[in-house]
Design a protein around this nucleic acid. Structure first.
Lengths: 127, 127
DNA sequence: ACAATAACTAACAAAATTGTTAGTCTTTAA
DNA sequence: TTAAAGACTAACAATTTTGTTAGTTATTGT
């Protein structure tokens, strides 16, 4: 449970109010989260399909991350009509879909420099 | 200190190997990190200027986040020539600069939906 | 001589996140 | 009737991250 009187919480709130960038990053920065979003965008809508894609995740952890993504309206849970027992699927909202190209650009950024693109900086002499 | 034999560590490594997306997010997802990068990109190159921008951060925490960003080659530390005592400045590398527009798009994504853009999802009936 | 500024570091404590274990419920297949 | 699949939940433990406290070093202003 989050302690609302902690410095940690207060600092998080401060950053959220400085810029939406910070809340955006908070929404996607949990372990497994962005990979779950990407995997759903690729068509893995069912709980057990996500488990197959992420073989090291436990059911409890997957359920928790899905719920947090749902709380942030990045995805939602739907019952699949006319299924017995009722099937559940996870689909991205428009908010979730809008995130996908941003995740792709982050991925490309990471790839570029892990593949050895040269890293340097200008020397700035003036204060 | 990181425990290399933990499940937590193993899962992180697994995700890093699945896609660079996950390592990219790990690099920017610490508290204060993306705000520090943005603030440096706006010209706040000095330790004390960053402290002014982030009045709730402690010196120890700022130093730690800067060191982690430096370890990921997003920024680097430079001595300012001909200063007594020697001045230190933090500058973004090209890798860091490439991140800035991505952070901006994350920021816009967050803003759009916090300002009330409608959130919805298609109903997918087929498995 | 003394305090102040700039830029840190190490050790520790508090809090948050992640992972584990042991359950639940419903339905279908053997 | 018993087991298995699918989709969970709650409580707890392990680990990691964040924040706190108390230092350091070098130089300048008073």
């Amino acid at each position: 449970m989050r302690k609302k009187q902690s410095t940690n919480f207060a600092n998080e709130q401060f950053l959220f109010q400085v810029c939406e960038l910070n809340s955006a990053i908070a929404m996607i920065s949990g372990r497994w989260k962005s990979q779950i979003v990407y995997s759903i965008s690729q068509g893995n809508h069912r709980f057990h399909l996500l488990q197959q894609e992420l073989p090291n995740i436990s059911e409890a952890v997957l359920a928790r991350q899905l719920k947090e993504l749902e709380n942030h309206a990045i995805l939602l849970k739907q019952e699949i009509p006319n299924t017995v027992p009722v099937g559940i699927q996870y689909v991205l909202t428009n908010k979730g879909w809008d995130l996908v190209p941003i995740l792709e650009s982050l991925c490309n950024w990471g790839k570029l420099y892990s593949e050895g693109k040269e890293i340097s900086a200008r020397i700035i002499s003036e204060i």
